[in-house]
């Protein structure tokens, strides 16, 4: 006979306490992931100092940064909408965030195609560039998948004032991915 875990929940933690614990977990995860990017960024500086390639497409880089930053704006709106039970607002903002995220990925692909011609992975700068952008893009991709799952799971209106942690968690993760780009972009494109 199986025992349920229900009793584990109601005596142990109130929903408010559970929320705080979840938030702590997310921050710990974000702290850990920032060490990953720190490792890659420090590798870049160790090998190359502040040198960078002459052939970076700066306008494109700036554009995709703008796209990502804007996506965070919509992500914020999605979270707020969920918190207040505005289902349509939540769905629209989440969908927009996903769209902008995909646009970012397309931009990255375009950057890569140019990059392969001028600084392929067999060069030092190319090694740093493709690895940093690649790891970040992987995180963007997982964020997009998580947002899509939110959209799918939330289509029945389940995310509301009483239950918005999944939205909050995913959106905060999305913000983290954005902040990571705020460090990566200057490291690759701007420092001289």
């Amino acid at each position: 006979m199986a025992a349920t875990t229900e009793h584990l929940r109601h005596e142990a933690e109130s929903p408010a306490e559970r929320l705080r614990t979840n938030r702590l977990g997310l921050w710990l995860f974000i702290a850990s992931e920032s060490f990953l990017f720190a490792a890659l960024i420090s590798a870049r500086y160790y090998l190359l100092g502040t040198e960078r390639s002459e052939h970076l497409n700066q306008p494109l880089g700036f554009l995709i940064s703008l796209v990502l930053l804007t996506s965070s704006l919509f992500a914020y709106r999605a979270e707020t909408a969920a918190r207040f039970g505005d289902q349509r607002g939540f769905r629209r903002a989440t969908a927009t965030t996903i769209a902008l995220g995909l646009l970012f990925m397309v931009g990255v692909v375009l950057e890569w195609r140019e990059g392969l011609a001028f600084f392929p992975p067999s060069t030092l700068y190319g090694s740093a560039f493709f690895t940093l952008v690649g790891f970040h893009a992987f995180h963007v991709f997982t964020g997009i998948v998580a947002l899509a799952l939110l959209l799918w799971a939330g289509r029945d209106g389940r995310f509301g004032p009483e239950n918005h942690w999944p939205v909050e968690g995913v959106i905060k993760y999305w913000h983290f991915v954005d902040v990571a780009w705020v460090f990566i972009f200057p490291t690759l494109y701007l420092v001289k």
């Binding site: 590798a43 090998l47 392929p120 992975p121 067999s122 060069t123 030092l124 190319g126 090694s127 493709f130 690895t131």
Partner: peptide, 8 residues
């Protein structure tokens, strides 16, 4: 370095 030809 092994697979993608990078040169770290």
């Amino acid at each position: 370095d092994r697979v993608a030809g990078t040169t770290f």
